[in-house]
Amino acid sequence: MRPANRLLLWLLLAPAVLWLGLLIVLPHLEILMLSLRQRVAPHEYAFSLQQYATFFDEPLYWHTFARTALISLLATLLTLLLAFPVAWHIAKVARGRSKALMLALLLLPFWASEMVRTLGWVILLRGSGVIPQWLFHLGLTAEPVELLYNDASILLGLVYSSLLFMLIPLVNALETLDDSLVEAAYDLGGSRVNILRQIILSHAAPGIAAGSVMVFMLTLGNYLTPVLLGGKNSMWFTEQIYTQFITRFNWEQGAAFALLLLVLSTLMVWVGLKLTGQGFGETLRRT
């Protein structure tokens, strides 16, 4: 490469490198340092693994993490189940104008901020909100019931805010599926279930993996939805991090939790991809 070209390359890369360095690498290094020290006296710190030990010793913390991971997994699965038929319709059934319209409709809610969208659910679900009032007036419930502040409402909000991130990789994956493969399988005696499993899902597997990883990570790291729809007792792990940093002003503990979230979730994604036979690098490239 000629020197001038190399300079140009560096100039072009500079914003990305700066962004990566300043916003991702540096804070994480800082967080790592924070998490590995303990205050022994005012303004005096020593190296310690105490913050990590606390996570495993105190059941509340790792229970919260396990719960967060489990609900995130469930939300990912539900999102996949809901998104797949929609993605199939957009990729394979809809044509021309109606296809463009459907994609636009999917994007439309994202013009409002996540806060507003989630508050929309609050308005619908809270005790004096729209749905409980209807149920009451229709005589289906004896009094207006509180539909907010439970696991189901958290799941609902998480699935709702994740749908698009699942749909886009799924639509992409299904669009590249040659219709004649499905027809050929049908022609050779394949049943619908078998064609779905052996041809369609196996073709769409990288897209499914990409969408699932994205949704899982976003859900696990989501703060707003669990707090707004799950209330104070939503027991979401990001809430613990928030509490440590902001309420308790225990930055060391918060930093350890943040790193644990990063490492454990990466580990879970890696194991998940290994179990389903998808390449880690390959999937990340698609997200």
Partner: peptide, 26 residues
């Protein structure tokens, strides 16, 4: 049975699995 214009062999399967597909369905 039909031979498609672009053959429609299943790229996610080996040649043997392609040929076995219909038999396995039986």
């Amino acid at each position: 049975n039909m031979i498609f214009q672009h053959l429609a062999l299943f790229p996610m399967m080996s040649v043997g699995e392609n040929v076995a597909y219909g038999l396995a369905r039986r």
